[in-house]
Simulated scan of single mutants.
Amino acid sequence: MKTTNYYNTFIEVAEDCPVKTAEVPPMRGEKTIANIEFELLIENPYEFTSDDVLFHVYAAKSHLKTKDSGEEKMQFFSKEQACFRSSPLTKRYGWGAHFNDEGKMAIYPVESEEYQQFARDKTLKQVKAMRSKKA
């Protein structure tokens, strides 16, 4: 199984993120990837790994039943998956992602003191979210 999990890492917002203050992803009909990720992470800080979140999004978008998820999860992670650096939360909506030593994650608004503390923390691996546009 391939993994997207990070440990002791902070993902800063993308350099070309269009917002200076984090935004809640707007609802437009069916839930988007950003809506699903945001709801899961804002309500459950440090309960899920990146793999958990990505599979939850896939399952929700694919309308999977939870009882089927074991085999589906193995199949989903048998292929490379984009990591959380490509999440719309970190690229577009102004949320940084912190991963603790167990790989569990939480999100923080770019304007928050917590975000700034994580961004300055030299004990964490610091990475940027992927840019939306090529430089």
Rank of each mutant, 00 (worst) to 15 (best):
Y58D: 05
E12W: 02
M27Y: 06
E23I: 06
E47H: 14
K67D: 13
A82I: 01
Q116C: 09
V110D: 00
F48Q: 07
D51H: 10
D16C: 05
W95A: 06
F76S: 03
Y7D: 02
K122M: 04
K65M: 11
K73I: 08
S132Y: 00
Q116L: 14
L41E: 01
E30L: 08
L124P: 04
V57Q: 08
R131T: 15
F118R: 04
P88Y: 04
M27L: 09
D101E: 13
V19G: 10
I11Y: 00
G103D: 10
D52L: 05
G94N: 02
F48H: 13
C83P: 07
A97Y: 00
G103E: 12
G29I: 10
A14L: 05
V110F: 01
A135V: 14
V53A: 04
W95R: 08
V110S: 04
N8D: 14
A119R: 15
Y108N: 05
E80C: 02
T32P: 06
K104G: 12
D101Q: 13
F99E: 02
A60H: 07
T3V: 06
E113T: 09
F84G: 04
K20N: 13
V24F: 10
A82H: 03
V53I: 15
R120D: 07
N100V: 09
T4R: 03
L54A: 05
K134G: 09
E114Y: 09
I36E: 00
T4P: 06
E30W: 05
P25I: 09
F55A: 00
L64G: 04
F99K: 01
K128R: 13
S78I: 04
E111A: 08
L89N: 08
A119T: 07
I42T: 06
W95F: 10
A14H: 03
M105E: 03
E30N: 09
K133C: 01
A119P: 07
A22M: 02
Y7M: 10
Y7P: 02
K73Y: 11
A59S: 15
D52K: 10
G70C: 07
P18F: 12
D68R: 14
N44V: 07
V53R: 00
R131I: 08
E111G: 03
K134I: 15
F38W: 15
F38G: 05
A106L: 08
R85V: 07
L54M: 08
I33C: 13
V13Y: 00
S112I: 05
F55C: 00
A106P: 05
S78W: 02
L40Q: 11
K2L: 09
M1E: 07
M1V: 10
Y115T: 04
I33H: 05
Q116N: 11
A106E: 12
K31I: 01
L89H: 04
N100L: 06
K67N: 11
R92I: 14
C17S: 15
A22D: 03
V53G: 02
D68I: 12
S69F: 15
P109G: 04
F10M: 05
T123I: 03
Y46P: 00
